[in-house]
Design a protein around this nucleic acid. Structure first.
Lengths: 280, 280
DNA sequence: TGTATGCTAGTGGTCAGACCTTTGAATTCC
DNA sequence: GGAATTCAAAGGTCTGACCACTAGCATACA
């Protein structure tokens, strides 16, 4: 498997910390949810300054391996595998990702996931999926609550697919889309339709019809995309970022079903304040 | 698009730095390849200590946004979008990813990419692809060199697909597999066969036959997988990570090409609490 | 008795400033 | 001209003090 290439951004001390944690992880002495020693202790044990240790911890936290809680401690990340949430956001502003591209990526990966789930899922998965579908039908008035089950439904399929890597990728993408989805999931008739589509997907998986599961999932996501586009059409245009270096200037318009819709991603609520630093 | 959820691992100062950089990026004042001000200057400008600034920089570097070079400076990452190389490696040890799963993920995504490339590529892409194929045929004795063109070929397809997100995902996966591939690409007859398959893929894309491109790509990756498995059969045993949370530890072997092993992980409550681990 | 309040130990967050190491390029010497 | 030297810039590390947040415990109050 991937034997972690040495990333240049890891300096000696940082790498020392990273390797230390990885070893403990590989040796099974540290598992998801576990707490690592206090910074002061660990720094002393590794014979490095607390500052350096913190650099390493920060690195691991950025990658989603560690979970730091002020006043409490630092823990090994526990939960579904996924890349750092912020990373996709940054890649987005850095490379000009667009909304339709996220939907497309999701459609492609998740429809495959559904097909795989149809072949590899077990009864336990079926039960979980059925439960989520049932919940979706019963809750037709609380968008936020509905979305929660929606997410869980898709997450279950990802898990049932037996491929945690693809599951992690889709988890990353969907979590990045979460906020926008919250705004979208609203109208009652829409929720009803969504519930029905999920049910259809569930049925296909349950009956181990991979092709059908894939098809239904694709249809479902296409509808979801169309719905969202119709609800949240206005988007702040992307930076032209006039490419000078063989820029990846993808054509702004794409074929049929997808119409480009640059994403906003405004500086959220809190966001920025002070400082206009003249970056040379 | 992704409204960067507030990541708990970002403390105030760190977030301040991150936001600052993001703003400059969004405002177009910073672009890939650009150098950011020296730490001492930037720290003063942001009115924070250099230590805190470094935390933020480390965070961004871990996410692959910044590229820090000792004695030179810190730059905005330049090059194909991808997630931090190390991240996949960590997720691997953290969630027990397996080799066949990486191949499977690659097969699924990249075959779709090929299909998309067939529909969206332009002449420029075709030229690049043709060049790489030609190089592959001419270089039949230098595995390392061959692999370089191989990588470039696939990267071009990813770019031609018009979906940078999927391109980034595949970039992440392939870079994680790079080392193992270096060991594999060796036998001359194998290189020859590879070159031919790449040529077939190219032809399909060139003739805009999406279905064929997808099929050829899938076949190509399947062959590559089989080849590698036959050469590097010994797999480092995975941690049993005895699932206590309804881990669906199915039998390690599965139908034909895939063997499913459901991942543990439960969306459920945190469960496992503290427990000070004696991390040596 | 039960709840509210306040204190405190533990742990991460920030700061300041000195010193070390690596780079890259200008300078000097042969 | 080319090689060795010098030097300034910029990142890397260290120390140790102090701040801030959490959770749990003890005390006070109703």
């Amino acid at each position: 498997m991937p034997k972690t290439k040495r990333d240049p951004s890891e300096s000696d001390r940082t790498r020392q910390v990273v390797n230390h944690i990885r070893e403990l992880l590989e040796r099974g002495e540290l598992r998801p949810g576990d707490k690592i020693p206090p910074e002061r202790d660990l720094a002393k044990a590794l014979k490095i300054s607390r500052a350096s240790l913190r650099t390493g911890i920060g690195y691991l936290a950025a990658m989603g391996v560690l979970n730091v809680r002020h006043g409490v401690g630092t823990f090994i990340h526990d939960g579904p595998a996924e890349f750092s949430k912020a990373s996709l956001g940054f890649m987005s502003t850095l490379h000009g990702f667009q909304s339709w591209q996220m939907f497309e990526a999701r459609r492609i990966i998740e429809s495959s996931l559904a097909a795989m789930a149809a072949e590899r899922s077990n009864d336990e998965h079926h039960v979980l999926l059925a439960e989520q579908v049932a919940e979706m039908f019963s809750i037709a008035d609380d968008p936020a609550e509905f979305l929660k089950h929606d997410v869980q439904f898709h997450r279950t399929i990802a898990q049932a697919s037996g491929n945690p890597i693809l599951a992690a990728l889709i988890e990353t993408i969907t979590s990045a889309m979460y906020e926008d989805r919250l705004k979208t999931v609203s109208r009652a008739h829409y929720l009803r339709k969504m519930a029905e589509m999920h049910r259809d997907i569930y049925r296909a998986i349950r009956s181990r019809d991979a092709a059908e599961a894939q098809k239904q999932m694709e249809r479902h996501l296409q509808v979801a995309e169309d719905e969202q586009k119709s609800e949240v059409p206005p988007q702040r245009p992307q930076h032209p970022r006039s490419g000078q270096k063989r820029a990846t200037t993808s054509s702004p318009e794409m074929p049929a079903t997808h119409s480009a819709t640059a994403s906003a991603e405004g500086a959220g609520p809190e966001s920025a304040q002070e400082a206009n630093i003249p970056v040379q």
